[in-house]
Amino acid sequence: MRDLPEPIRPGTPRDSGGKGAIDIDGVSIVFGHGDAAHTAVETTSLRVEPGEFVCILGPSGCGKSTLLNAVAGYVTPHTGEVRVDDTPVRKPGPDRGMVFQQYSLLPWKTVRDNVAFGPLMAGASPTEAGAVANTFLNMVGLKKFGSRYPTELSGGMQQRVGIARALANYPSVLLMDEPFGALDAQTRLVMQENLLEIWRKFGITVMFVTHDVDEAVFLADRVLIMSAAPGRIIEDIRPALPRPRSTDMVALPPYIAARQQCHEVIRAESRRAFAEQNL
């Protein structure tokens, strides 16, 4: 079993320890071959600092999930390279925790066994893995639900299990692909606050894909706006909101300013794309 960091004490912010730097270095991603080739992500370079919370914001089909999948190791870049803490990404691994939009828990394992899966794969004994799972389930407020099966839980609860499961591996990077996209508005708000709290405790780097401007501005240190066809990053916005954040901050001027800026960039880009289509 690999060395695990000390147990998480709620309320004590943990330093990232300088881990979790993401370097996207001249990465382009192409699907298909020959005439059917389609550039999903145009040559992109980007550095995410350790402990940073980055949102990738863009419309459906702009390649934001593809870019995330390249960091996760599911997609191999056509050119360039992704490095996490200077190690080139070749395949998926437990150092990069992944949270999907929905239905990614193993339905045949209990909630606890789902969370314990990563530690088990890392070589922990079932008892150790179970204990780790309990710690993380407790953190997301679901300790009582350990013996349930995922389908017995609501969508929001399932996503909390998904987050606990990814964190149970003590990853340096957390990759989230529209994790709250399928939830209702109220649940989404609660989940966003929970996530920020977890992020603060872990000091972990988060790369979060969303098409929701408000979500991106509320969560992120940096909002990277992507544009479609071909997918590329067209803007890097840093909302000047203080931390820790709470939902009542949406009335503050910096929030409104950042939100406005996002909308303007998106609107300009949509106009340009629309005009191009009509040529």
Binding site: P92, P94, M98, F100, L106, A166
Partner: peptide
């Protein structure tokens, strides 16, 4: 699900 467990090691 395959992707999920791959990312869990």
């Amino acid at each position: 699900l395959v992707r999920a467990v791959q990312s869990l090691g």
